[in-house]
């Protein structure tokens, strides 16, 4: 079963534990500026929104890469950057409609979410359940449950 990151912004408090966990996993330092997930604070609305790659099925970044440095991780479905192959041309950063692939000047390569090989650290670090890692075929399950609960049908014994 493939899984997918599932983000519920209503639960986000903006603590940035996800950014710390992501950067630590990938760089060995606690460094939100290197995080592949970013929390946006719309302060005048009181909304905080974590945002990262959705792992598009037909991924713009992957299709645009001239050197095939972005490949699919068969186990997780993640579109993963092969650093050794990436030439830092930045075409993928232009192709991605969502801005979730970014060029890192210090390494001369692009970086994006790779689902941490199937154990995304942002999700396990989130203290409020705003970021979870769920069945990729059932990302709507929680929302369905919420609506189902509103059906308000009385139980009747058979």
């Amino acid at each position: 079963m493939q899984k997918s990151l599932h983000i519920d912004p209503a639960k986000c408090t903006g603590c940035l534990q996800c950014e710390m966990a992501c950067s630590f996993e990938h760089t060995g330092a606690i460094n939100p500026s290197k995080s592949r997930i970013k929390v946006f604070d719309f302060e005048h609305e009181g909304r905080k929104v974590p945002y990262t790659c959705t792992q598009c099925a037909d991924a713009w970044c992957m299709n645009s890469c001239p050197v095939e440095a972005i490949v699919i991780d068969a186990a997780t479905g993640a579109k993963v950057v092969k650093e050794a192959t990436c030439v830092g041309c930045k075409v993928c950063t232009i192709a991605c409609p969502f801005g979730t692939v970014n060029y890192m000047t210090d390494v001369g390569k692009v970086q994006k979410c790779d689902l941490c090989g199937g154990d995304p650290k942002c999700a396990s670090a989130c203290p409020t359940g705003a970021i979870t890692y769920v069945d990729a075929d059932w990302t709507g399950l929680d929302r369905m449950r919420t609506w189902a609960a509103k059906a308000n049908t009385a139980a009747v014994a058979a």
């Binding site: 408090t13 903006g14 603590c15 940035l16 534990q17 710390m20 302060e43 609305e45 009181g46 909304r47 905080k48 203290p127 409020t128």
Partner: peptide, 19 residues
């Protein structure tokens, strides 16, 4: 009250955001 909010790294999130 609109929502609660956390400071950096805080897993309590006592902050108040209001309108």
């Amino acid at each position: 009250l609109v929502t609660n909010a956390a400071c950096f790294g805080c897993t309590i999130a006592c902050g108040r955001i209001s309108k």
